[in-house]
């Protein structure tokens, strides 16, 4: 178990270094940042000193080493656009994105999984067929269109919910939260639904197919023969056996929610890291882009690590392999 975690950690570091190379190469290949930072009338000498100050004249491997060492300490340099430290810039935006992604994930999980269980248990019921049909729409409509449609209905026509921004937020330390004000909560609803709808339909369809599979197994039939209640069979025996693939997909999708919140944040003018990234791309603000890339890489690695550990919690067959309890017989 410990060996497994260590192995996974080493792999994670390798992945992050690779992401680091990509992020670093942004600096070298996406135009000359000096041009973006200085005005037309800056002299060559001034440009040269700035170049020296930013370390852009060092040999590439040394620059890469500096970049990695600094990144590991959370120092990503100054934004070319605002001249603020990139770390602080991102940290200011992170709460908005994380809260949005969290709500979207909760929405997807708590609606998607029960719907999947239901449609898996009663595949022939008319409501299951309805869910299936509607989920096709969820899976095939692009996110921005769903966002715009939701804005049209709930913000423009019904005037129930705000169409942009976070509403009022409360500051707790460096973290700003939506959860403590009424307008903040209201502002979360539409973006969360927009962001989570795709994941919801994906989860629902996954749980459904896994449930259909598991309900055909011999141990479910034997559980019935033991006279267990439907509740114990459906939500204990069956659902737990669908969990491994569901955890995998949920983990990957959680990463995707955070990474690809960009579209939703743009549609709803949500002040998160995704929006920051879009602005940075427009200004070729390479330090911000590189830091964002690394941040997303780190998130994916952390989520995957958590997912791997969750497998052990769910499936005892994985636990004993290489462990002390040897498999007896056969």
């Amino acid at each position: 178990m410990l060996a497994f975690i260590l192995r996974r950690l080493l792999q994670s570091i390798a992945v992050l270094l690779t992401v680091g190379v990509v992020a670093f190469s942004l600096f070298r290949y996406v135009g000359d940042p000096i041009n973006a930072m200085v005005g037309q009338d800056t002299s060559m000498e001034e440009r040269e000193t700035l170049r020296e100050k930013l370390g852009l004249n060092d040999p590439a491997p040394l620059q890469f080493l500096n970049f990695i060492v600094n990144a590991a300490q959370g120092k990503f340099g100054l934004s070319y656009r605002t001249s603020e430290p990139v770390g602080r810039l991102i940290l200011e935006r992170v709460p908005a994105t994380l809260e949005l992604s969290f709500c979207a994930a909760v929405f997807a999980l708590f609606v998607g999984v029960p719907m999947g269980v239901y449609t898996g248990l009663y595949p022939r019921h008319w409501s299951s067929r309805l869910f299936q049909a509607v989920s096709l729409i969820g899976i095939s409509l692009p996110t921005f269109l769903i966002g715009i449609l939701l804005i049209l209905v709930f913000a423009v026509w019904l005037r129930l919910l705000p169409s942009f921004g976070r509403g009022e937020t409360v500051q707790i330390g460096w973290w700003t939260t939506n959860f403590l004000t009424w307008s903040g909560l209201k502002a979360l609803i539409l973006p969360s639904i927009t962001l989570g709808l795709f994941q919801l339909t994906l989860l629902m369809r996954l749980v459904r197919s896994e449930m259909l599979e598991v309900m055909r197994t011999e141990y479910i039939k034997f559980a019935r023969a033991r006279g267990l209640t439907n509740r114990a069979i459906n939500f204990g025996h069956a659902l737990k056996n669908t969990l491994v693939p569901v955890i995998t997909v949920t983990g990957l999708q959680l990463g995707a929610l955070i990474a690809f919140a960009i579209v939703t944040e743009t549609v709803f003018a949500w002040p998160g890291v995704g929006q920051l990234f879009i602005q940075s791309v427009q200004f070729s603000d390479i330090p911000v882009m590189a830091a964002y890339l690394l941040l997303i890489g780190l998130l994916f690695v952390l989520i995957n690590l958590t997912v791997d550990l969750l497998y052990f919690v769910v499936d005892p067959r994985l636990r004993s392999q290489g462990g002390s309890a040897r498999v007896a017989g056969h």
């Binding site: 011999e218 023969a225 025996h237 737990k240 056996n241 499936d315 005892p316």
Partner: peptide, 15 residues
């Protein structure tokens, strides 16, 4: 009570 053919698949692997 019931006993089925295959003991390998009659028991839930996760409990």
């Amino acid at each position: 009570g019931a006993i089925f053919q295959d003991p390998l698949t009659s028991l839930n692997p996760l409990y």
